[in-house]
Simulated scan of single mutants.
Amino acid sequence: MTSVLITGCSSGIGLETALAFARRGDRVHACVRNRDTAEQLLGRARAEDLTLDVPLLDVTDDTSVTAAVTAVQDRHGPIDVLVNNAGVDRTGPVETMPLDQARTLMETNLWGPLRMARAVLPQMRARGGGVIVNVSSLAGRTFAVPHGGFYAGSKAALGALSEALYAEVQPFGIRVVCLEPGSFASAIQRAPAPGTAGQASGTGPYAADHAWLARFLARVAEGAADCAEAAEAVVAAVDDPGTALHTTVGKDAEAALKFLAGVPYEQWLPSFLDQAQSLAGPRPAPPAGDR
């Protein structure tokens, strides 16, 4: 029986991935930050008569990570597969986005997977095998959109970290995969979170532009794919030793990378703005006093 530990399982891709592995009969440790957020996961599992272990784990906290991983290994033995799925999104201008929000992105999207990998790698090396799947984003492989620099930066950094880790642990028989989903109907897609409270700021030189981007993201989310498709890709990546390090998930992701091949940012940006304006209306001009 394969032992699979997955972070961020309260909703979206993490929830669907936990159920997908449980349906195969794997021992699944579906981690959540607090018990209150696990009801949807547990309800779905009960409905399908699936067995799940649901540890509490906060990927931004060293003590929480160590305690959760140690407890899982003590009770159930070595972890064969780690799926680093937990992630958050915030949008905001490079100049004015609160730094605590930018740090939250990095703590969760970059340092979180690093903490988790460091926690499981000693026992994977000792056994000479294991799989680490880092769930990144298409945003880490494509050009950053306005107000999306910090999120894209966190995911691009995760991709670079995955590359180095891939090379470092390969001699120990450990595989690393960096999955890069496009638009999926996750909690992030349903509720983009500009600024500090999930809504575009009502003041400042970038406020109107930020609100415009939020309208565009909301429209994009309307056509997002089912997270079960992304979960299937995670399972397939674990099963197939030939899975590429960088693996896109979703037709939109594949199309985007193909379109961007060899295209400079300066040429791409006007086409992006045209698409955004077709969905969200004309991009607002900056306030006269702030130009």
Score class of each variant (00 low, 15 high):
Arg283Glu: 07
Val120Pro: 05
Phe150Asn: 02
Ala117Glu: 09
Val59Arg: 03
Gly77Asn: 08
Glu168Val: 00
Asp53Ser: 15
Ala191Lys: 13
Ser271His: 10
His246Ala: 14
Thr2Glu: 07
Leu99Gln: 12
Ala117Lys: 04
Pro205Ile: 01
Val69Arg: 13
Ala256Ser: 14
Arg24Asn: 09
Leu161Gln: 05
Val234Glu: 03
Phe216Ser: 03
Gly242Leu: 00
Val177Arg: 00
Leu217Met: 15
Ala211Val: 03
Ile6Cys: 04
Glu254Tyr: 10
Gly198Glu: 03
Pro171Gly: 03
Val83Ala: 04
Leu114Thr: 11
Arg90Thr: 12
Val88Pro: 03
Gly281His: 06
Ile13Lys: 01
Asn84Arg: 01
Arg27Trp: 01
Leu57Gln: 09
Thr91Cys: 06
Gly87Ser: 12
Ala233Gln: 07
Asp209Lys: 00
Ser201Met: 00
Leu245Trp: 14
Asp80Pro: 00
Ala47Arg: 13
Pro287Trp: 10
Ala47Gln: 13
Ala164Cys: 15
Pro270Arg: 04
Thr60Cys: 11
Tyr206Asn: 02
Ala208Tyr: 11
His76Arg: 11
Val94Lys: 01
Ala187Leu: 12
Arg27Thr: 09
Pro181Thr: 03
Ala191Asp: 13
Arg283Asn: 04
Arg23Tyr: 01
Leu158Gln: 09
Ala117Pro: 05
Gln123Cys: 08
Gly289Trp: 08
Pro282Thr: 05
Ala236Ile: 08
Phe150Leu: 15
Gly204Val: 01
Asp226Cys: 08
Val65Asp: 05
Leu99Gly: 05
Asp80Ala: 02
Val65Ile: 06
Thr63Asp: 04
Ala47Leu: 09
Trp212Lys: 10
Leu121Gln: 07
Arg46Gln: 11
Leu165Asp: 04
Gly153Thr: 10
Leu165Met: 11
Thr7Ile: 08
Gly195Tyr: 06
Ser201His: 06
Gly159Trp: 05
Leu279Ala: 09
Trp111Ser: 06
Asp49Glu: 01
Ala139Lys: 03
Ala156Cys: 01
Ala160Val: 12
Leu52Val: 04
Ala67Phe: 01
Pro282Val: 05
Thr203Gly: 07
Glu254Ala: 15
Trp212Asn: 13
Met106Asp: 11
Tyr265Leu: 12
Phe150Ser: 04
Ala193Gln: 03
Ser64Ile: 11
Ala253Lys: 04
Trp212Gly: 12
Asp58Glu: 14
Glu229Val: 15
Ser186Trp: 10
Leu279Pro: 05
Arg118His: 15
Gly140Cys: 11
Asp209Ala: 10
Arg46Glu: 14
Arg23Lys: 07
Val177Trp: 00
Glu266Arg: 04
Leu41Lys: 07
Asn134Gln: 08
Ser11Gly: 02
Asp61His: 14
Arg24Trp: 02
Ala228Met: 04
Asn34Leu: 08
Asp74Gln: 14
Gly140Glu: 13
Gly130Glu: 13
Ala71Asp: 07
Arg24Gly: 06
Gly25Glu: 08
Pro171Asn: 07
Asn109Arg: 02
Leu158Trp: 01
Val54Gly: 05
Cys178Gln: 09
Met1Arg: 15
Ile13Asp: 00
Met97Pro: 02
Gly112Arg: 10
Ala256Gln: 14
Cys9Phe: 07
Tyr166Lys: 09
Leu260Arg: 12
Gly250His: 10
Arg90Val: 12
